[in-house]
Design a protein around this nucleic acid. Structure first.
Lengths: 260, 260
DNA sequence: ATGTCTTTGTGAACGCGTGCACAAAGATGG
DNA sequence: CCATCTTTGTGCACGCGTTCACAAAGACAT
């Protein structure tokens, strides 16, 4: 996952497992598509296929919400859309503030998926005075100096951080101080927040690195198909282990350090 | 997590658990920062704090890679940076192609975090003929018609999809056909791919919905602090259950369906 | 050389998440 | 009203991931 909650021992809130909560939006999307096609009911098998999950898992997930299905028939699409929306809290309006209007921040401000489900971009905030007043996605950018007031005035409880990594923690602190209790962090930084504040992070670089790991593994397996008991990555230049303290003897060159 | 691998039964590759692989980039980032400050060694406790994880977890993670630490001292920073980089496959060059150069695609093309660790944006591809030739982030956009050739010529094995949802599956199929075996999907679509192809998805909307769930829960707990045995979300308008098949009688209004 | 002190590496226990497989429930047809 | 058939809801077992707690290993001082 490009994500993962930070800290917090996976508080199974109100009996609904965290893993299930993470899948509810997936179901909701599939159900919405069915709803638009005026499909009245759907079986767990069909819906699971549409959402890309196991049907048993889906049934168990729904069982945490209640018994919303009809045996022998399936689930009522409209009803389920409503129930999941309500469970996720999408029946109410969530004003969101985006801090850091660079390329990514601007892209998010323009992103239609935000507005689609109860989320409303209420404010854009940037530290660059030159940007103040400039409209992005039809919303004028405001200066960081007014962050506290902006959050309060708009009743923002969800903040999105798209600043450079160096500014992320400071922005986070100010958001929290202003009353924000949920943060979506795009900056490659580990944020520390007080209890009661949720942080989710989206890290593009990490996702790519995970893909690279598996990609390398695939390539290695192919290469070792000729028939060697040798490890796939054994042909890498063997780096000399840098002896930590007691530099005993002339062990020569240090390991070739990668570009940071 | 903004992510989660799609399908594939969590193949514990070469003995390294999937969960550990997902954390290695985190450690690498923290280590790189230490390296830049010329810190020679670091204890599991310190590094764990910097990466935002438990120190026992970190030690266990590293134990899957080998015994790279020195008891009583800690880990050699440079050496560990090299080992993790190698394990993740970052010692080689990964040409990446981005398909769909809208706001998000352009933001990714400009994103510095990509280039920083062995990833190189080798090609930008878009379906709009008007964009062909226009440079984005210094790289000219190429047309979808040439997708196959572009992938082959550049030896791209990792593709990034930032198209509208409707085009995602088709683009995915073409990427796979052209030889891509790892895909990072930003489109809100469930992609189906043949075996041997990895898909990771980043879904901004899902992340926000998960935050909203917890946010709602926090608000509900506060509200029920006055002293009610009633459920926090009981005050919602009780929707009339749409009777699935046997539409018995005029049960009137359907549940207020949410905006899709 | 020996003792002390720090920190790693890991055995073991525990809890969560997943998937199987089936009984219960309800629809449907005769 | 009864039989059959479909599909849900869930008890159960299993495996992965996390955490604790401690023994082993090495550094360092004397």
């Amino acid at each position: 996952m490009a994500t993962g909650r930070t800290h917090r021992p996976a508080t199974r809130s109100r009996g609904i497992p965290e893993a299930t909560v993470a899948r509810l939006p997936l179901y909701l999307r599939a159900l919405t598509a069915l709803s638009e096609r005026s499909v009245p009911t759907v079986s767990s098998e069909e819906l699971a296929a549409a959402a890309g999950v196991n049907s048993a898992k889906l049934r168990k997930d729904f069982s945490y919400l209640g018994s919303y299905g009809t045996r022998g028939v399936g689930y009522d699409v409209e009803y389920l859309v409503y129930q999941i929306s309500r469970e996720l809290g999408l029946t109410q309006d969530w004003p969101v503030a985006i801090v850091g209007i660079g390329n990514l921040g601007a892209a998010l401000a323009n992103y239609g998926g935000f507005a689609s489900r109860g989320f409303r971009v209420a404010a854009l905030i940037d530290a660059d005075p030159a940007m103040a007043g400039t409209p992005v996605a039809g919303i004028p950018v405001q200066h960081t100096d007014d962050l506290d007031r902006i959050i309060s005035d708009n009743g923002v409880s969800i903040g999105v951080i798209t600043t450079p990594p160096g500014a992320a923690q400071q922005v986070c602190d100010r958001l929290v101080a202003a009353g924000v209790t949920s943060i979506l962090n795009f900056a490659p930084t580990v944020l520390s927040v007080p209890d009661g504040v949720d942080v989710r992070k989206v890290d593009l670089s990490i996702e790519l690195q995970i893909l690279a790991f598996h990609e390398q593994r695939k390539a290695g397996e192919e290469a070792s198909a000729d028939g060697g008991a040798s490890d796939a990555e054994a042909e890498q230049a063997p780096p000399v282990r840098a002896t930590p303290t007691t530099r005993k003897g002339p062990d020569g060159d240090m390991p070739a350090v990668m570009p940071a």
